[in-house]
Computed example of a mutant assay.
Amino acid sequence: MAAVLLSVHVVVAVVFVGAVTVAVSLFPRYGRQALAGDAAAVPALRLLHRVTRVYAVLSLAVPVFGIATASSLGVLTDTWVLAAMALTLLAAGVLVGAVLPGQQQVLGAAEGGLPPGGTRTDVGARVRRLATASGTFNLVWVVVVVLMVVRPGSTTGV
């Protein structure tokens, strides 16, 4: 059973979290293009924002299967698992607290609606903050993957 849970956990992580990380990474680039007047970039922004939202929800399956897998393997209280869970919460916080709202603001501005009292310069700064948050989100996932592969302190680890 542990092998099935682990397989599902890995597949769900690759497909769902992978889609989110790609969409999050591409959004600032198309945001800059749209704000520079490239109308063709706006549909790309809409698509990337939708992919981010939908796959973020689907990605909730990753920790569910991860906890089930860790529990079945008897490693749920191992430090590397707890660290990975904490980092997963951090990634979720960055996504919900910075990336998704930032995408919404940039998309709104690209569609022609500047925030009240806002300027293109303000939105340009938002794109830069969004790019930073996106990089942070992706870096956290890289660390989680490394923890999953190396499993520090594990007797079966490298």
Rank of each mutant, 00 (worst) to 15 (best):
R29T: 15
A40P: 02
R126N: 05
A98L: 15
F16D: 03
H9P: 03
T119N: 09
G18I: 05
S59N: 09
T21N: 14
V42G: 09
G124C: 11
Y30M: 10
G113P: 09
L87Y: 03
G157P: 06
Y30F: 15
S59C: 08
D38G: 06
T119E: 07
V140D: 09
T136S: 08
S25I: 10
G102K: 01
T52P: 01
W80A: 07
G124Y: 09
E111M: 10
T52Y: 02
G18E: 01
G97R: 04
A3E: 15
L95R: 02
R53L: 13
T132G: 11
M85E: 13
A34G: 02
A109L: 05
V150A: 14
N138P: 10
V51Y: 00
Q103E: 12
A92Y: 12
A110Q: 04
L48A: 00
D38T: 08
V144E: 06
V142K: 08
V4H: 12
V127K: 00
G118S: 13
R128M: 11
V8I: 15
R32V: 11
V142E: 08
V11P: 04
F27Y: 10
G135F: 06
L35V: 09
W141H: 13
T132I: 09
Y30T: 04
N138M: 05
G117K: 10
V64M: 10
V158Q: 06
P116W: 12
A2V: 14
T21G: 11
R126H: 07
G31R: 02
V17A: 09
A84K: 08
L47H: 12
P101E: 04
R129I: 04
L5A: 02
V51W: 01
V149F: 12
A86R: 08
T79C: 08
V8K: 00
A23N: 02
V15P: 03
A34R: 03
V62G: 06
V62A: 07
V42Q: 11
L45C: 01
V96S: 13
T121N: 12
M85C: 11
G102T: 06
A133F: 02
V144S: 03
G108M: 07
L89I: 13
T77E: 14
S71T: 14
V24M: 02
S134L: 05
T88V: 14
G18L: 06
V145N: 06
L35A: 06
R50H: 04
M85V: 15
V158R: 09
T77P: 00
A131P: 00
V24D: 00
V8C: 00
R50Q: 09
T79N: 14
L100Q: 07
M1W: 07
A83L: 15
